[in-house]
Design a protein around this nucleic acid. Structure first.
Lengths: 203, 203, 203, 203
DNA sequence: ATCTAATCGAGACGGTACGTCCTGTCTTCAG
DNA sequence: CTGAAGACAGGACGTACCGTCTCGATTAGAT
């Protein structure tokens, strides 16, 4: 019976040091060469203190990532989705920002590591999706709903599908590295999703 | 000077046994718990025989995957992309087949493992993209080119972008498990990509 | 400055529980697998309460052992050495009792553990000798002195040497397990020490 | 089924390095602070190479001890027991040599460590007794048998008992440190054992 | 048909990291 | 304001694999 530890007595000092060390190390050596031992050493912490609170290095990195976006969000990030009334412009704006984040080494390393690890490990993937992905998707969906309500989208538009049509190609290029991620690319995706690529044959 | 081995002397018996063992094991224990040692033991082969011909377990799995699709392709698969003249129908047909493959445990395990590993490891990712992904993308692109030449797509259509708009959402759902993969989903993606989701406000 | 704790405030309840737990555990798992943590858990006591009063698990066990012989002594044991006038008989009586104790699992486990630990650790050994061994040796020595004074031993007999000649062989067999400990063995030792083994070649 | 390794393929280089390191370290830090990890590091060897061939640090030290006495024996040691015809002199000679060994830091540390560990761990103790102690005892026994056959000892003398009467007091003082080990002490033990301590009352 | 050199199965090797256990200290909370 | 409870930094445990390195024993290809 491995009794769960008491969160009230948790050392916040250690917690922060661990998350910081994990972020730093994943940037330096990558996810595969990231080790719990190295995190503990860098954080000046016993290994047990990591294993007491997280089941795996992936879980540590997930929390570290959340802390990272939390910190960023507190300072500069947007909470709501922009809504200028121009759907295409708003989407392009947000996707360009996302591209910029993916091109920023600091955010990219842990995000890629987590996404890949989550793809391979269903349990971790579930937590990643729930804690990171879904909240993000919900923002897109809300913006699209506003647009649909305003008559800018067909009333029967499948919002979730549309979100995935926007983020799918971006994620595809990012993860599989088929080509560089650019603003032009996401702009084109937005246009393609909104207007379609088929030549309208009938006037 | 680690002289390269002589491929002429290579034991095909061992090569097959290794690839089979790798496929079997990745299905049983997953990529992370897959070990070179276990592959060697299962294949009845010395570890050195694996290291002589492949640089890593990922490379073994990549070859195993290629052999798997090769075998499938030899028996039943399509070499060319179907071209009935109806672009939407052809795309839906192929994407439905892809969905079926992703829902088939046997193909899914190594494919997911490789995709995830490739996302995390740039070098492996490059080989994966080159050997597996690009050939597939080229088939889509060729079919789309035919359609564009036939006037079914706007003349300035970005073919590669369009392919990624088709495969991106599918891959997104598959890897991130946001929702089950269904024929309905890919059908909707095809329709969405071809027609767009924005309400035509009248010309 | 790690101030020494105030013995007046010491909880006797905890002290007893700790000593009992130590004795019970050393019998169950042996000295090497005996841990302070387990003693604390079994005694329903915080680890600090052990470290506050004892420097090591060996010290705890030493006190536990003393308490054990103290309890036994209070109930049934002999304080003085028997003195019937017959030295050989008195020695055999006491050594037989000692053999019985060494063959009693309950006393044997902590005694052996302490003796072995004391042999390996000089500091502990010194305390063990002082607190346990010497008082015992003194009793033997007193009885031998009486005999010497009564002319039953040569006037220049080295009493301490004689005591060690009596206890040495017993301890040897006990610790090194070269053969079972029996009454016959100690009887023979007593006879051998008193009479010698060399054939008297005639005066 | 943890299959036993193949001794034919054992690296003698590693074996020697491990035994040397173990002896050096036990002298430096003592048995309790001796760790398998440190032995491996000092020997320039993987931990697994130790665990492959020995079950515990105690077993390593036992082999190291045997190698040590083996080396010493090859160079200078006596194989047979001296037999000058004078039993007392021969015994004193050998016991003095043993005292010298016990007073030599180099031999003392591993010997004490093993004896103590063997006292605490029956399994190790059995191997220690069989491999180290018994061969030694047999030499004493043989010398005593010669003496008995020569009529220097009573015909019904219990040889094993006599050996333990000689070695018991020596071992007692050595392990329990009740007093320093000197030549005078062992001389007195020999005299006491041969002649007895009781005053011969009848002429 | 032999010779000979590379590959083969096997597995020991020096290492790294694992996840667990325990040490001895420090901190929190309930009685 | 004590003392149980237990989190903490640290360190060793024994295990699992890594990738390299011998070993004979096949096993082709060149002779």
């Amino acid at each position: 019976m491995p009794k769960p530890p008491d969160p009230a007595r948790r050392s916040d000092r250690s917690r922060r040091a661990i998350l910081d060390a994990a972020l730093a190390l994943v940037g330096e050596v990558g996810y595969n060469r990231l080790t719990v031992e190295a995190i503990a050493a860098r954080a000046g912490v016993g290994k047990q203190t990591i294993y007491r609170w997280w089941p795996s290095k992936a879980a540590v990195l997930l929390d570290a990532s959340l802390a990272l976006s939390g910190d960023a969000g507190a300072g500069s990030g947007w909470t709501g989705f922009p809504d200028t009334g121009d759907l295409a412009a708003d989407l392009k704006y947000v996707l360009r920002a996302t591209v910029d984040e993916f091109n920023d080494e600091k955010y990219e390393a842990p995000a890629r590591a987590l996404t890949a690890a989550g793809a391979a490990d269903p349990e971790l993937g579930a937590r990643f999706t729930e804690r990171v992905l879904e909240p993000q998707l919900a923002l897109y969906e809300a913006r699209l709903r506003t647009a649909r309500d305003a008559g800018q989208l067909a009333p029967d538009t499948d919002l979730r599908l549309t979100v995935e049509m926007l983020l799918g190609p971006l994620t595809y290029r990012w993860l599989l590295r088929t080509a560089p991620l650019t603003h032009a690319y996401t702009d084109a995706v937005v246009d393609g999703v909104l207007a379609g690529v088929a030549k309208v044959t009938a006037g």
